[in-house]
Amino acid sequence: MQLQKKLASGEFVILAEMEPPKGTDVVAMVANAANVKRTVDAFVIPEMSNAVMKMSSLGGALLLQSKGLETVLQCCCRDRNRLALQGDLLAAQALGVPNVMAVSGEEITHGDHHKARAVNDLDLMELLAAIQTLQKGRDLAGVDLQGAPSFLVGSTVKIPTSDAARLDEVAELDKKIATGVKFFITPPVYETAALEKFTSLLKGRPVSIIPTVLLLKSVGMARYINRLLEPKIPEDFINRIQKASDRVRECVQIAAEIITTLKNRGFNGVNISTIGWEDKLPAILAAAGLEFGG
């Protein structure tokens, strides 16, 4: 409940993505999470991000919750039908997961199981509406539940770059807010200008916008992102990594600087994504000057 309380009181929240393993060995996952448990308010457990098969978000979330760590479950339209989604949400709440984040999921073709069937029984808006229906004590068939869940609900938001796209995204965000979404996680942010232009349109809305800070791992990764994805990584960051004698340290430093900037600019928090380098979280948090202790 830490996350909900902090967001309600306007405190800066720190989320960290904690990828479950591709396998059953959870030692590293638990250790990486435990290392930063005093600083991180909740761990976002990705649901097979990039459509790469891993331990489920539900499994990872329950594991960390069992160690006393707060989590954000991701429920994803891609792999489960409405029965499975609802059943997992009930299980998650009954076993202590207080937060949920609805995502549509990357395409199966982007992952490592190209031959699989995508489910997409519910789309993202329908899934958010389904969560709200469950919270009101009924399932999607209209049957009363024996105990209703009460999640803090989150979802994703884009960072549009044109005026028209910004207005479209505000309309989309309003639809999500109407289904009970309280926090939104953005794609990776490297510069705040585009995001601030967008968030300036959101004044008065009772939601928190939590930018993602992605730990760059190499020049190659940065170049790859800039070739295929938006937003682009500033060349300055890429040059710094390239010239650094300790490139990993420089990557950690850049992530920490972005966190500091976001905090100073008054954002509600950050979601730190380290995609496999979760062991670097203590260094990132320390470099960002955030309270840290094992």
């Binding site: 395409e107 199966i108 073709t109 190209h114 031959k115 699989a116 069937r117 995508a118």
Partner: peptide, 12 residues
């Protein structure tokens, strides 16, 4: 073997 559904509608 599990079917390759990528040639079906699942592949887009």
């Amino acid at each position: 073997e599990p079917k390759d559904w990528s040639t079906s509608r699942d592949g887009g």
